[in-house]
Write a protein that binds this DNA or RNA. Structure first.
Length: 161
DNA sequence: GCCAACGTTGGC
DNA sequence: GCCAACGTTGGC
């Protein structure tokens, strides 16, 4: 099992949008970057876990956890000429764009902001925190996953006490 | 709204 | 195949 971080602008699709979707599940469509596409198509597997990150948000933060419920398959939106994500250059017989399906697992409350994450020495090499990193589907190491989920539990405890 | 960093495009 | 120009991302 592997770990990932998916970025989304909350104005376009937020974690609460995922939670209110049928089965709390959605096809992760609209990815138009080849490096991210390759991960969606070739690498990400059912059962993998995903941090749901809000970019261009105030503040930018990890806001939830999701899991992969269907591995890579051709993205329907790219082949639907009525859809905003339609790509006329993609050949339906050999589609360019792929998606996976994810399902919400739980809210991360309070959110783990970018500032919170930068403050953690163990996360110094995280892809998200690298300067100029724009990849919208990115790998998370097991060590990073553990540190971050522990942070999430810790801050919950603090709030209670 | 600004702008640095990045990915893609297209002329040559 | 190089690289300048352009468009996009995304933090601030």
């Amino acid at each position: 099992m592997a770990y990932w971080l998916f970025k989304s602008e909350p104005e376009s699709f937020s974690f609460s949008d995922l939670q209110s979707a049928p089965n709390q599940t959605t096809g992760w469509d609209g990815v138009r970057n080849y490096q991210a596409r390759n991960l969606l198509r070739d690498t990400i597997q059912v059962g993998d876990q995903v941090f749901f990150y809000h970019s261009n948000a105030e503040p930018p933060a990890i806001v939830g956890i999701a899991k992969v419920v269907q591995a890579g398959h051709p993205e329907p939106s790219a082949l639907d000429h009525t859809h905003p994500y339609y790509d006329e250059k993609s050949d339906p017989g050999n589609p360019t764009w792929y998606q996976v399906k994810i399902q919400a697992v739980k809210l991360v409350e309070p959110h783990l902001t970018l500032t919170d994450l930068r403050a953690v020495p163990e996360l110094a090499n995280m892809v998200l925190l690298k300067k100029g990193s724009r990849l919208s589907v990115q790998p998370v190491t097991e060590a990073e996953w553990k540190v971050i989920t522990t942070l999430a539990k810790g801050s919950k405890k603090e709030k209670r006490g």
